[in-house]
Design a protein around this nucleic acid. Structure first.
Lengths: 116, 116
DNA sequence: GTTTGCCCTCACATAGATGTGAAGGTTAGA
DNA sequence: TCTAACCTTCACATCTATGTGAGGGCAAAC
């Protein structure tokens, strides 16, 4: 499919799709006329990208992490450096998650208190 | 305490403390000479701010949410609009949290698979 | 064959979090 | 009293994720 269709199905602007490509998160093929050609599976992938971005990760981090989300372990033996980088990122995500959880609980407690 | 001390104890730059103040997240008093005067409790508060920022919230949102984190329900009856705003923010946080959780699990699965 | 709508690239604009430096006041110690 | 270390404000710089518009091809429909 072309950029417009993907942009509608994934609900992001064409501009962003080009940006994600520039950042190495997406690598669509090209039609003969130079138009980008996206395949079906990218609708989901764009969703993952958005969700990671909204969780506070940067495109740079997502670039590292995305392969792990794509169909369990694409290549057999990823470089150990890569695995370490991912592990590190994983730990940071876990921290964010903790922090979010704690703050969410605090806010819930507040809402509880105030709503009565 | 003055800005330098807080900046060291909370491990953020003085610049950021001034920025948080500008954003309404911190309201230190002033000494007679115009120097900012922070009190003890702000070490923790700055930590909360950092943690919320790193979880992807903006200063604008944090401004709303911080009062809820400070000593259970400061004022008795907050305006309903305010409560709604907070509730809305709470829901967004819950979404982020879900997304983070899912992605974290996926990455863990990947690391598991690869580490064997 | 011209209009319409989509595509391309390039490039400048903006908002938010943060860094950095200038210009100058205050304070404490040698 | 001079210096070093701190403080102030102001303002410009930087990075990331985005928007927006210009200038120009391609394709389908009228």
């Amino acid at each position: 499919m072309r950029i417009k269709e993907l942009s509608e199905r994934a609900d992001v602007s064409p501009r962003l799709l080009r940006y994600y490509e520039e950042q190495g998160l997406l690598t669509p093929g090209r039609e003969e006329n130079g138009y980008r050609a996206y395949d079906e599976s990218l609708v989901v992938r764009v969703g993952q990208i958005r969700s990671l971005l909204s969780a506070g990760l940067t495109t740079e981090i997502i670039r590292d992490v995305l392969p792990c989300l794509a169909e369990a372990a694409s290549s057999q033996y990823p470089a150990p450096d890569f695995v370490n980088r991912v592990r590190q990122e994983r730990d940071r995500m876990a921290e964010r998650l903790d922090s979010l959880t704690r703050n969410l609980q605090a806010i819930d407690a507040y809402l509880d208190a105030v709503t009565r």
